[in-house]
Design a protein around this nucleic acid. Structure first.
Length: 149
DNA sequence: GCCAACGTTGGC
DNA sequence: GCCAACGTTGGC
């Protein structure tokens, strides 16, 4: 899962109440489908910082809730407001994320791109903009090793 | 700030 | 349903 650290960095999750935050603001259908239909409670997720000085994977968070209606879409003062989403018929969903751990150092996008073992990873594909992306078991294990785990 | 690569919107 | 115009993402 990607986030702009200016918006929400991994330390924001770590420092929040119960080290847990509602992950709101997904406004892309494909990303929504992932969190609504594929992600399971208890799953671990790589947390990626984008649009920043050092883009890369910074750590791991855990999914601690099923997807439910993203209430920020109902709030007309929110930047994520969407008049076409309603409590009766929500268009967007959110999940709760809990801080897992931070890697000793950022695994930079540059490093991921240069790694032959990760050539097929969605994240390094050209034009991959999705904020929620699948990771294979092999990729997960490989990156965990890079992180020194 | 540039721009490539997507995604979305809306007229037809 | 097509597709041009526009908006967004995100690395560089």
């Amino acid at each position: 899962m990607k986030s702009e650290p200016d918006e929400c960095c991994i330390d924001d999750i770590k420092d929040s109440t119960d080290q847990c935050i509602p992950w709101q603001g997904i406004r892309n259908y494909q990303a929504r489908n992932y969190i609504r239909d594929n992600i399971q409670v208890g799953e671990q997720v790589f947390f990626y910082h984008s649009s920043c000085k050092e883009p890369g994977i910074v750590g791991i968070v855990e999914v601690v809730s099923d997807a439910s209606a993203d209430v920020s879409a109902f709030d007309n003062t929110s930047p994520y407001f969407d008049a076409k989403s309603s409590p009766e018929k929500p268009r967007w969903y959110s999940i709760d994320l809990k801080f897992g751990r931070k890697f000793p150092k950022v695994i930079r996008l540059k490093q991921l791109k240069a790694d032959p073992a990760l050539a097929e990873m969605v994240l390094v594909a050209k034009g991959a903009r999705l904020s929620v992306q699948p990771v294979t078991v092999q990729e997960w294990q490989h990156i965990s090793k890079l992180a020194g785990e």
